[in-house]
């Protein structure tokens, strides 16, 4: 069978880890984003410079309010930054587009469409021929073990199943970049691990660039080539950590735990600033 999705850089082996030499695909320069919440101006992002290479799996890690989702939304084109630029393949991002498929924590499936219709929707928008759509949808349903659910509506699916559909829907677009906003945050631990493994399997097979937002330290170590730890307000890059461990990673390995301890410390510092801030704002009200 011919591959349904383009693989990353030419000549790359299907299963590979690390993208050390691949060209930069997402380039974030001097990004700043501020909001006004009431009278209080909030600087959600400040001085963000970030390069993500083709095929890289990057996690944005940090506590609530650190601006990780804001950064993801800036790359997605939903919220343009107040200052600075986001470029993808040298093109300035000003609006959302199917070249950067997004997976939302809330799944965001269209409830009036069946599983198969949800997956096909993006392809119909591209005005792909019907037969080709059917073939691609079938292939994706198989990939994500959704064949038996093709005619179900999202309301009849579990959270894990819904997120599979959402992943199939963006994979259908065959966009080079996947943006994932805490996609497994609402799932139970076992479903979460299953989907993490499936995501890794698919990523290794089709080689997308993935930018993945999470507040789970363990999830970030389990998945990423590279973890960007962010600070709490203003959101800046606190640390850029390469994860060299081979996959599949063993969460009980000493290396894994060493990194976990190190990252926990960094994240907890920010978490403390977040809780202090929260307490302050409550007492101020």
């Amino acid at each position: 069978m011919t591959p349904m999705l383009k693989t990353i850089a030419d000549g790359q082996p299907a299963a590979w880890t690390g993208a050390g030499t691949a060209p930069v695909q997402i380039s974030v320069r001097g990004v700043e984003k501020s909001f006004t919440a009431g009278a209080q101006p909030i600087v959600a992002l400040k001085d963000i410079d970030l390069d993500i290479r083709k095929g890289e799996f990057v996690c944005l890690l940090g506590p609530s309010g650190c601006g990780k989702s804001t950064l993801l939304n800036a790359v997605a084109g939903f919220q343009p930054p107040t200052r600075g630029t986001v470029n993808v393949d040298g093109r300035l991002i000003t609006e959302p587009g199917p070249d950067r498929g997004m997976v939302f924590q809330e799944y965001a499936l269209f409830p009036w469409m069946t599983v198969a219709q949800n997956v096909a929707f993006g392809l119909e928008i591209k005005t792909m021929p019907k037969a080709e759509i059917a073939e691609r949808v079938e292939w994706l349903l198989g990939k994500l073990h959704l064949q038996d659910f093709r005619n179900r509506y999202p309301k009849d699916l579990s959270g894990g199943m819904r997120q599979r559909v959402a992943i199939a829907r963006v994979l259908a677009l065959d966009s080079p970049i996947l943006l994932m906003d805490e996609p497994f945050g609402a799932l139970d631990a076992l479903t979460r691990r299953t989907l993490q493994d499936e995501l890794l399997r698919i990523w290794e097979e089709v080689g997308k660039t993935i930018l993945f937002v999470t507040h789970s330290i363990e999830e970030s170590i389990y998945l990423a080539d590279r973890i960007i730890v962010m600070t709490y307000r203003p959101g800046t890059i606190k640390r850029d950590v390469q994860v060299e461990m081979p996959r599949p990673r063993d969460a009980s390995a000493p290396e894994f735990n060493r990194l976990k301890r190190e990252l926990s410390q960094m994240v907890m510092e920010e978490q403390q600033r977040f809780s202090q801030d929260e307490i302050r704002s409550v007492t101020a009200d």
Binding site: F78, P98, F104, A108, L109, F110, G122, I125, R169
Partner: peptide, 19 residues
């Protein structure tokens, strides 16, 4: 969230309204 998901899939204005 539906509007955002649809825009992300590249849906234009007319299709957004109808579908």
């Amino acid at each position: 969230i539906y509007l955002r998901a649809a825009r992300n899939l590249g849906v234009g204005r007319t299709t957004m309204f109808i579908r």
